[in-house]
Design a protein around this nucleic acid. Structure first.
Lengths: 348, 348
DNA sequence: GTGAAAGCGCTAACAT
DNA sequence: ATGTTAGCGCTTTCAC
């Protein structure tokens, strides 16, 4: 025979461990689950056998009967630094638990529900969803089966928990800041609304961006100013293009309030390319991503502590896994961080 | 009874679908796998039943017999823009396949092997590993079970595929650029080597960073200059601190070659804070992350096309899933993108 | 405290 | 072309 004799062709199973340790499969199962009813002696035997055989439980098999010890994160945009902060916070909160995190990114042209379904299909024990654009009714049905935390949307649900920043306060702070600096022509740049308008839209003005835009309109109205809202795609390149158009207009804005930092950074690049700076056009973002505080960027932004949101998401999920069933709403504080990208207009 | 009568408490299984469609379980299985031997009529029946019952196959159950249709990505640093580019490329390549991607990020203080194991435990059909710091011998054993592609390390393996940029050429271009600008005191900033030195270290100078550092030393030696290598952690904050120290030294460097863009951006922040710019200290990075081309950053960097690396990783994995067994090595071109962060010294 | 046996939902081999 | 059957590796009663 030409097959190598030494290599085990097959990873060891719980059966192998049981045989090796001279106990039953059930006994091994109890040991790896830290379940009740194992003698110290047996535990030692089994643990040794597990070591020797390099046994690792197959998660798929475990998931069929018990838990997968996996928490799934649905992330709409892998490169988004704000979402990264959330993941970092979650990672930290997961450190001393038996749970592993997996992230399901959105595929190209894919909606959040595909990724959320994919997590549910994989039998994760809990889901953190971040895509704002999924049907709440559908989400409730998912939450019937799998504990779920939704980050960034202000809707109220009986079945899943929600985590948000205080978007109203954050946007108020931005507007007070810009108006206080004397700006009058303030443009608001934000991601385009879902199109076609989903049937569940309007229901509670759920999305964070929608809240920010609403506050912008209110404050402009109160100040007796004409609002101008520009919609772009998620990524910064379109914000860049939109800003170029704005800057070329006869009456160019003196300030831009961007719906998030990714957009704001795109705005800044267009401003810089036009040879302008904060004394010509003030720019304010939202999320306070790490790069915002880079001295070459110096972006004024609203800190809603992504790290904390991620930590909290995990905490809520773990609570649910321990039995909580009533829905919880958590709101993080919003704090404006003023930096060089916003200021008073150049004189003359 | 107080239980709600209308809600199915249990998601439907293949059995339910079979019953509903009046066929066997195997028949349903064939339909969902697009397998050979189903009449059009039966397919229609089954598809309709699947719709009606909102049936979704449990991935865990499928994985136990067949495939999980899942590709796993082990990512050492979620916030790293270079890795994000890889994921984006992979997402694109996966768009028209039945495979779903999941990302396993490293937990706090966790090594890459934990995440890779976690993916293997979850029965993914293939793994893309990016952590450079895992034992190649161990990796080979993982690859015996699960098709594996390693990105960013130059080792040669019989069992897994490797994808790298041309780090030698990239580093050569950086050094030629800086030396050509007339710089003599060039410092190289890179991530610290594994400590303690792993037993498999030195074996082929596998890591990308190690190659870049080696080229730096060679070129400095050839130019008759004194090399100075500074090691930091992965994230930019330590690079920032290290740079402050460098700038405070009596003979401060006139150029810094950073091992990657994350570090380079940290360097830039320290340079800016010291009130200096490219005419005082040139900075060059590696990876050409998106923010590098932002006009306020303008970081000279080596483009090794992360997008392409990600696309290629998926391509190689899919090839293996279709039966390829010989290992493949793929090397992407490296191209220096010169921007404002590097230039000739200020006169006087 | 321990083990035997049933079964989770699915696919693959083998009937028919 | 379709149905039957035997598991995959694990957890969970439920006996002992």
């Amino acid at each position: 025979m030409s097959t190598e004799p030494t290599r085990r062709p097959r990873p060891s199973t719980i059966q192998d461990v049981a045989r090796e340790a001279g106990v039953s499969r059930a006994a091994v199962s109890k040991v790896i689950r830290n379940a009740y009813g194992v003698s110290d002696h047996m535990r030692a035997q089994v643990t040794a056998a597990i070591e020797r055989l390099e046994y690792r439980p197959r998660v798929a098999a475990r998931a069929m009967r018990g838990a997968s010890f996996t928490l799934g994160f649905e992330i709409p945009q892998v490169g988004n630094d704000f979402l990264t902060m959330i993941v970092d916070g979650a990672t930290e909160a997961l450190a001393d638990t038996p749970y592993q995190m997996i992230i399901a990114p959105l595929g190209r042209d894919q909606k959040g529900d595909v990724a959320i379904n994919s997590l549910a299909d994989r039998q994760v024990d809990g889901i953190v969803a971040i895509s704002p654009r999924v049907d709440p009714a559908w989400l409730e049905r998912v939450a019937e089966r799998t504990p779920l935390v939704m980050i960034g949307r202000h809707d109220r649900s009986e079945r899943y928990d929600t985590i948000t920043g205080d978007d109203r306060s954050g946007a108020e702070q931005v507007m007070s800041h810009l108006l206080g600096l004397g700006h009058r022509r303030i443009v608001h740049l934000t991601i385009h609304p879902s199109r076609p308008e989903p049937p569940w839209a309007g229901q509670a003005g759920a999305e964070a961006h929608v809240v920010r835009t609403a506050v912008y309109r209110e404050r402009m109205a109160v100040a007796g100013l004409e609002p101008q809202v520009v919609h772009t795609l998620f990524d910064g390149s379109e914000a860049h293009a939109a800003t170029r158009t704005l800057l070329a207009a006869p009456e160019r804005p003196t300030a831009v309030f961007a719906g998030n930092d990714t957009l704001a950074i795109g705005v800044l690049s267009a401003v810089a390319e036009a040879g302008l700076d904060a004394r010509d056009v003030s720019v304010v973002g939202y999320d306070d991503v790490p790069i915002a505080r880079h001295p070459l960027i110096g972006l004024t932004s609203v800190d809603q502590s992504g790290i904390e949101l991620g930590r909290e998401a995990v905490r809520l999920l773990l609570e649910r896994l321990e039995g909580r069933t009533e829905a919880v709403r958590y709101e993080a504080e919003a704090v404006l961080r003023v930096r060089g990208s916003s200021g008073v207009l150049r004189e003359g």
